[in-house]
Each structure stands twice: as structure tokens, then as C-alpha cells.
Nucleic acid binder design. Structure first.
Lengths: 248, 248
DNA sequence: GCAAAAGTGTTAACTGTACACCCATGA
DNA sequence: TCATGGGTGTACAGTTAACACTTTTGC
């Protein structure tokens, strides 16, 4: 980043990143804990986000901000929505924080939100810049967030679910080798409801998006699960053919 | 609008409106013709859009801009996407126009796009402000537009089609009384492909979204069509219940 | 042998799709 | 009486949804 970028900050436009993470248990979300120690106030948790520069486009800004605050990079971010309420940064509990990090804390800021879904175990967020502490929190337990970030989260979750209905889940979301149970749990976590095991497996088999590997789990105290990998070619083919009903 | 609003313009953020119109034939789009007379250059057609004010939110801005440029109001606008490429306003053919209407024609502007679908015959756009002439153009015939407006159009069209898959078409899109053939043509126009007449009617009947009126077309040189109206209650009920598969 | 998760088939209801003819009207 | 678009039913294929037991492993 050029040294004079500070002068090039666009004080009216920010990006916010909704990073969903999956640990084979619950759907989680990556948040900045603004006042470590002073726990259990939902308003002290915020999405990683910041102002954009004038010499970068929105996608670049989202990737840069995510990297600067969390260290995460090479994550596919999908644009979600724009938020521009006049009062979105006017909450009392957010004012002090804004004054500490912004040149013009009173300026109305419009934010463009992005979302992604990653495998929690494959990424290790490292707090930096004003993100003094980062935490993964289960989405289902979040009741509110700083600014209008709770709205942004819910919007992104809607988008993620709708996307799942018209596209199969991407390849970046699971380890290279995974079991069908893991994939099953992933779908259930995103959709927030149970899916019948047999029906799920049948559907996956029919779509031909996963390939059975000649390898099993080791050392588990139950019947070991077979590993699978994604069938990248078929995924591309399905997308290109306009197949858009994965029926979940 | 307050007189001092001119000082309150946000030079970095605009809204653009993709107004789809349906005339029971083709899906059309409302465009500003920038140089009337100098026809057939697609780059002389632009979406109605303008900078926002700092004392209005994005939805308000979209509605205001649409009204100022076209006279259209009380149209439900749905947010589509944000566009922020660095070069989106840098095309040579757009420079002169920008210089004539903007204080800071060189500034990078991020735009938030909105879309809607209206019944062409129920709205009568009146050009005003810098929109010297407005035209409806068939979407299928558009090959390019000013700025990045062709991208914005295609994005909005995608959104409209996807929306149709998870929600029934809204009530603002057809006259109060309409025939099933009109509704049928509307769906075909949006989706850009033919739908079987019998299957379409069966599906509509099952969804229970339209109510047969005791009234027929008059003076048509063929069997007169029955009029229908929307069943607003059932529409609301379906949306609330989370029914989201209209299967087209 | 027991606890724990993997893996597997069948049936019934529903949904999508393909397809062709008669009807009511104005001219 | 003809041209025009309105309106209707059926059968097949495919998809969804509900449901319970056996298998393999570590301990």
C-alpha cells in the first residue's frame, strides 16, 4: 500500500466482511471483539470492516480490509448488499470507538457488505490493526451486534442460503478430503434445519459432484467414514449448463 | 427538497435505476437518451441515476432520483448491487456528459443499483432534469450502454429472474385486472423462454395467488379471456410461511 | 459386547413435462 | 365461415419425503 494512501481514504464508503466459518458442528461467524474482557455485551462485537481507498475497487477493498484486520487472504468474497441508513453509525455505544479510529467520526458512511464461507480449521485469523481481538461465534447465538452489523449478518445469511439453493456449495468450504457426513452437516448448518441422511446422500450421488476416494477415516471409535473429494469438472459443467436447482 | 441540498450532494455515491417495463409483448427497459437525434449508438443511452444527498438513505435516494428524472413515483425499488470499478466513469464517450452535469466529473463514483418491474401502460415517464428524453427499449435488443450500465442491467436481470424463482411476481407489475395470458406472457418475458400454457395455468391455480373475476374481455375477435385479480392475502401468507419455490 | 457414527432401499405422494383439440368471439 | 387467441386433461417420468436396521470400529 502506498504511504500516501492515508490521504486517499474515502471517508464515506466502507466495506464489511461477513466471514462464515464451519467447524463441522455449527455455523460460526468471525467478529472483532472491541473491548476484550468486557464480555457478554453483543454490542461490543463488530464485523471486520473499514473505509475504502479511492484507488481500489470494491472487491479489492473488501479483500484488503479483511487481510489487514484478520490476516485472511485468498478467500472468495461475494458481494451481499449496500447499507446506507442515516443512523447506522449513530448508536451511542459505537461513538467512542468511531472517534478513536476515524478522522471524521460523524460522517455518514455507506457500507458494502461481502460474505464468504470458509473451513474454520483451514484458516487462522490473526488480529491486527484496530482489530485487537478476533473471535468465532456461533451464528445462532448472536442476538445483536455493533452498528447495523446484525442486519448485515442476517442479510448475508439469507444470501448464503439462497445461493445454496441455486448453486452447489463451493470447494473452498471443505478440506480437500472430506466425508459425506461432514458435507451433510455443512448443509444443515447453513440451512439451519435437519436434512434426511439417506436422501441427502442420494442427491449428492446423483449430482455427481463428489468422488469417492479409496481412503477411510482412521482411529475413530465407530465405523470409519469414506473420504470424498469434489469433482471440479462436473461442478463447472453444471454451472455453465445453467443447472440451478439443487433443491434444498 | 431543501435549497441547500446542493451543498449536501455526496459526490462519491450515486444510485442507478433499472426500470423494467412490460407491455404484454416484450420486456423493456427505461433509458435516458443523452443525444436525441444521434441515434443507434448504444453508448448514448444511460440508466436513470444520479448522485445521492448526504441527508437521505439509499432507498430514499433511489426513489427521489427516479422521480426527478422520470416523474415515476410509488414504485417499489429493490436493491440490486454496488458497482465500484475504478474505470466505470472513464469512458471517453461519457466524459463530456459528466463534465456538463457534475461538479467533480473526474471523481470516482460508486453506484448502488436498484431495479423494478412495472406495467408500461400504467406509468408515463416524463423526462426532466438532465434526462432530456426517455425511451423504453426492448431488453433483448440492448448490446451496450453508457458507463458500466450494461453490466448493471445484466446484473439486475439476473436478480429479477432469481427473484421470480423464489417469490411470485409482485402486484405492482400488472393492472388490477389481468388475464392469465397476460400473466403468462409476463413470466415468459422475464425468463426469456417459453412456458407451456396448460402447465403454467395449472401452477397458478394451485398456488392460489389469483382470483377469477366474474368479468371477461370485451370486443376481442376471439374467445374473450376471463379477468383475474391478485390474491394479496395468500401472497402475504406464502411469503411469510417461507414458501420459496415457485419452480420456474 | 457395547457405544457411536456410517451406510444402505423401498414406497407413496407429489411435481414437472409433454402434448392436441374444442370454444367463443368479431369480422 | 374463418381467423384468432382462450381454455382444458391425461399420462409418464422424475423427484421428494418418510422411514429402520445392519455394519464397522475402538474401547
Amino acid at each position: 500500500m502506498p504511504a500516501n494512501n492515508q490521504n486517499n481514504l474515502n471517508n464515506g464508503i466502507s466495506v464489511d466482511c461477513v466471514i462464515f466459518g464451519f467447524d463441522f458442528e455449527k455455523l460460526q461467524i468471525l467478529l472483532i471483539e472491541r473491548e476484550p474482557g468486557k464480555k457478554d455485551n453483543p454490542l461490543d462485537y463488530a464485523l471486520p470492516g473499514d473505509l475504502i481507498y479511492n484507488d481500489e475497487n470494491l472487491d479489492q477493498a473488501a479483500n484488503r480490509v479483511l487481510k489487514e484486520l484478520t490476516g485472511l487472504e485468498n478467500i472468495y468474497l461475494e458481494q451481499s448488499a449496500a447499507f446506507g441508513s442515516l443512523d447506522r453509525t449513530q448508536r451511542e455505544s459505537d461513538r467512542a470507538w468511531l472517534e478513536s479510529v476515524r478522522d471524521q467520526p460523524d460522517l455518514r458512511v455507506i457500507t458494502i457488505s461481502y460474505y464468504s464461507l470458509v473451513n474454520i480449521n483451514a484458516f487462522d485469523p490473526k488480529p491486527s490493526s484496530f482489530a485487537s481481538k478476533l473471535v468465532w461465534k456461533p451464528v445462532a447465538e448472536i442476538e445483536d451486534l455493533a452498528f447495523d452489523h446484525f442486519d448485515i449478518l442476517n442479510q448475508a445469511l439469507d444470501n448464503l442460503r439462497n445461493r445454496l439453493k441455486i448453486r452447489p456449495i463451493g470447494f473452498n468450504l471443505l478440506p480437500e478430503k472430506f466425508t459425506l457426513s461432514q458435507l451433510h452437516k455443512l448443509y444443515e448448518a447453513i440451512l439451519g434445519r435437519e436434512l434426511d441422511k439417506r436422501n441427502f446422500r442420494r442427491k449428492m450421488a446423483k449430482l455427481d459432484l463428489v468422488v469417492r476416494l479409496d481412503e477411510k477415516q482412521q482411529g475413530v471409535p465407530h465405523k470409519p467414514s469414506n473420504f470424498y473429494k469434489f469433482n471440479t469438472e462436473n461442478y463447472q459443467k453444471l454451472i455453465e449448463e445453467g443447472y440451478d436447482n439443487f433443491g434444498f
